[in-house]
Every structure is written in C-alpha cells, then in structure tokens.
Computed example of a mutant assay.
Amino acid sequence: MLEDQTLLLNQFFTLWAMLDPISHLPLFLGATADLTRQERRRAAVLAVIFSYAILLFFGIAGQHLLHAMGISLVSFQIAGGIILLLFSIAMVLGQPLSPKSPADDAGEGALGVAIYPLATPIIAGPGSMLAIIILTDNNRFTFAEQLDTFGVLAAVLGLLLVIFLLGDVIVRAIGPGGTNVMRRVMGVILAALSVNLILTALTGWLRLPPI
C-alpha cells in the first residue's frame, strides 16, 4: 500500500474525475441504444476490459516513449495539467467531452461498440492516458506504488462498470438534473487537481518550496 494515504486518495479522485463514470453514462446508453439488454451488458464488460488494457499499456510504456522522444516528464506534466484543466473546464461549462456515436449498424454487435466508441475515446481518451502516465511517474513512485495505482485504476473502472450495468436504474433515480450536477462537481475537483499538477511541476523545476 502507498504510505501516503493522501496521495492514494488524490490518485483515486483524479482517475474518478478523469474517467467521470456519471457523465459517461448517457454516452454509454446512447452508444448501446441499438443493442439488446444482454448485448449492452456484454459491451459494458468488454469496454472496461479494453480500457484497462489501453491505460495499463500507457502507464507501463508511456514514460519510456516520452524518454525515447526526448520529452521531459516535467514538460509532459505541465502539458498534461493544462489539457486536464481544459477538460475540466469543459465539464463545468457543460460542453461535450466525447463524441456520441451510437451504433448505426445493429449487426456491429457488442464487440464493435465496446471497442469504439466506448473503450476509446469515451473511457480511455487522451486525458485519461495523460493522467495515468503522470500518476505512474518512474521518478516519483516506486514499483509497488505504481502497482497500487493500477489497482486504484482497476477499482475505478470496476465502479464504472457497475454504473454502466445499472445505467437505466441510475438515470431514472437521479434524472438529467442530477447527472449534470455530478458532472460539474467532478469538473471542479478535476480543475483543482490539474492546477496542482502544474504547480507541482513548476515548483520542482524552479526549486521552489512545496505548495
């Protein structure tokens, strides 16, 4: 386990806000509108599995790819923080975050919908990839801590899967207004975490006292 429980919670809320299961629920329901109930459940499971595989790859190899391209992690952290900040602003302002692409051909089946648009770009989008690379920084976290991060990622995706599977019930329970409120709250939290990422990178680069 991570010794710093605050860091563990920070990672959980960063991934929760980034993956944003509540606001992705309408996208999931729209993308699987032409599927049967059984196909919809299969698409949800496959999408989460594919998303975890994609984010796991970026968590393991992402920093090595940056090194091969000559990009410092500080630069990537600042760029990632800015992108996450823009993403969070879109969440707060209610702008569309991901393309809504319902399955035009019902014969495409659960597998096709699970890969696109559910796994990518709805779940494992560019912002999520940036977040997992930053949260598994080889210079800041040990191998055991990185394993904890992948465990946190699995937990968040597991909760996302539960929400997808209970999608119809949740939508009826909280209504469109509740979904919008949750989306904006997650946006505010993500904005604060994004600013913290940028300031942390700047303080390390400029050798300033920790914020």
Rank of each mutant, 00 (worst) to 15 (best):
I54M: 08
V162I: 05
T142E: 08
L118H: 04
W16L: 09
A124W: 03
W205Q: 14
I198K: 00
T36H: 10
L193M: 12
G151L: 04
A33E: 15
I189S: 13
P102I: 07
L202A: 14
A31R: 00
L190R: 03
M1P: 07
F143V: 15
T200E: 14
A154F: 07
R41A: 15
G30F: 07
L7I: 06
L84M: 13
L86V: 15
N138C: 12
L97I: 13
L93T: 12
R184N: 06
I83C: 13
A44Y: 01
I89K: 13
A154V: 01
G81A: 10
I83P: 07
S98R: 12
Q63S: 12
R40T: 14
Y52Q: 03
A110Y: 09
L190G: 03
R183I: 12
L135Y: 10
V45S: 06
L202S: 07
N139W: 11
P96F: 09
G125E: 02
G151Y: 00
Q11L: 11
I71F: 06
I60W: 02
Q5N: 09
P21K: 00
M69G: 08
I134H: 08
H67L: 13
A61F: 11
R184Q: 10
L97Y: 09
R140A: 15
I170A: 04
N138F: 14
A173E: 03
P126L: 10
L66W: 02
H67D: 15
M1S: 13
T32S: 01
V195R: 07
G112N: 05
R207T: 14
T200P: 01
L66V: 02
F150Y: 09
M69K: 06
L46A: 14
A90H: 14
L7G: 03
L190H: 05
L8N: 03
S88R: 01
R42D: 13
L157P: 00
Y116D: 14
E39I: 06
V92D: 04
G158I: 00
F143E: 13
H64L: 13
I122M: 15
G59W: 00
A144P: 02
P21W: 00
L130F: 03
L66T: 04
A106V: 12
S128A: 15
L111H: 11
L2W: 02
I115K: 04
S51F: 01
R207Q: 15
I54T: 06
I115F: 09
A68P: 04
I198Q: 05
R172P: 10
L73I: 09
H64Q: 14
A173Q: 02
